[in-house]
Amino acid sequence: MRAFRLDQLELERAANDGAYLRFLRERSMSVGLYALAAGQQDPQRPQLQDVVFFVVSGRASLTVGHETTVVARGSVVFVPGGVPRRFHHITEDLRVMVVFSPPEG
């Protein structure tokens, strides 16, 4: 078993000066913490993997393909691989747990 604490992951992500911290990679999936500040632009591009976003904190709009929804703490969104997606209109600092299958990178 491997266990993680969100506060420690956030410290590690911030210490590495990155918006994304991959903290788990296994044969069938990888998991990371993604952070965007209020008002920030989301630079992500479509990827081949399926992805699940779990919003840990914050508030934003998320556009997946041609659909847009508002996400906030507790939101869970599945995005099929290859479909364009981006967070925008980020009104509260956003922290998102991201699960890729198969693993990214």
Rank of each mutant, 00 (worst) to 15 (best):
V71L: 11
R59E: 01
V51L: 05
I90G: 00
A72E: 15
F100Y: 09
R25P: 02
V52N: 05
V56Y: 14
I90D: 00
V98H: 14
L33Q: 03
A38Q: 12
R5G: 05
G74Q: 12
R95W: 09
D7Y: 13
R13T: 08
M29L: 15
Q40E: 06
H89S: 13
R5E: 03
F54G: 01
F4A: 00
F100A: 04
A15P: 06
E92D: 15
V83M: 04
G65T: 03
T68V: 13
V56C: 06
P102C: 06
F100T: 02
P102M: 12
S57H: 07
V77Y: 02
Q44E: 11
Y34H: 03
G74I: 09
D93M: 07
V76I: 14
F4R: 02
E12L: 14
H66M: 11
V79E: 00
H66R: 15
G18C: 10
A37V: 13
G18A: 12
R27M: 04
R27H: 06
A14F: 12
V71Q: 10
V52G: 07
V31S: 01
D17L: 09
V83Q: 05
R25N: 02
G18V: 08
H88Y: 14
P46T: 03
A38P: 07
S28Q: 06
M1D: 00
A19L: 13
S101M: 04
